[in-house]
């Protein structure tokens, strides 16, 4: 099943605390008056310009295998390579906030309005993740139903370009999913336009399938370690 998802603007407005964190503020730190005013302005611009849209399509394990393989440039072993064969459901997905908000960030940088551009970028990045989450929830609703007990199952999203899944995976993902229908295009370097877009695969299955040790060779180069936060979230 392929579904274009309506995402409300409310669903992509992040909590201010997330923006504080993205801007480098600690848990108990309040922004200065000027920064607070910038955050308020950035949210206003974001609400005015963001046009969130999403898309997902169920896919079988067999169909996903060549998409994951991409152009054959993945790391020999990756977390996703070990995870997806254990999935009960898979879906390709893509979301975007539309060109106007990405364009506005560029315009603000071009006009030397760096601070607002930077805060808007943070608001939009958080918003794009929330859009992906909204699509994931719709997928969950669709496959789980209302009364199905899924306490032991969990869904996580994985994207090309991260954790050993080479960015060239975008090529076959786009061929299959056709995110052009919601306004996302892929360039020759497998990068999405508009910039504030997210794509990948939703993996639903028993919680245990998502667990892995972050001891892959490329984990040494990773300083963000967001995989650990994601796993904590589903535990």
């Amino acid at each position: 099943m392929r579904k274009i998802v309506d995402i409300s603007i409310e669903a992509v407005i992040s909590a201010e605390s997330s923006i504080h964190k993205a801007l480098g503020l600690g848990l108990n730190q309040e922004p200065s008056e000027k920064t607070a005013s910038l955050i308020e302005e950035a949210f206003e611009v974001f609400i005015d310009l963001a046009r969130p849209k999403g898309l997902f399509e169920n896919i079988t394990l067999e169909e996903f295998a060549p998409i994951y393989a991409g152009a054959g440039l993945n790391e020999p072993k990756t977390p996703l390579g070990g995870i997806y064969p254990g999935a009960e459901q898979l879906a390709l997905f893509a979301v975007t906030l539309g060109q106007p908000v990405s364009g506005r960030i560029d315009e603000l940088f071009g006009a030397n309005d760096f601070a607002l551009a930077y805060v808007l970028d943070a608001v939009a990045s958080e918003g794009a993740e929330l859009a992906a989450e909204a699509v994931g929830e719709q997928f969950d609703d669709l496959v789980m139903g209302d009364d199905d007990p899924f306490e032991d199952k969990s869904q996580l999203r994985y994207s090309p370009g991260y954790c050993g899944w080479h960015i060239s995976g975008q090529g076959r993902l786009f061929d299959r999913l056709r995110p052009g229908d919601i306004g996302i295009e892929l360039n020759s370097s497998y990068l999405m336009q508009p910039l504030k877009s997210v794509s990948g695969v939703i993996v639903l299955g028993k919680k245990e399938i998502h667990f892995f040790n972050n001891s892959f060779p490329f984990c040494n180069d990773c300083v963000t370690k967001t995989c650990r936060d994601r796993l904590k979230h589903i535990m």
Partner: peptide, 16 residues
């Protein structure tokens, strides 16, 4: 003592 948005406000002033 300050965070990036304040640095960027200063940078805008620098550019002016």
């Amino acid at each position: 003592d300050i965070f990036l948005p304040e640095v960027l406000l200063a940078a805008k002033a620098m550019y002016a």
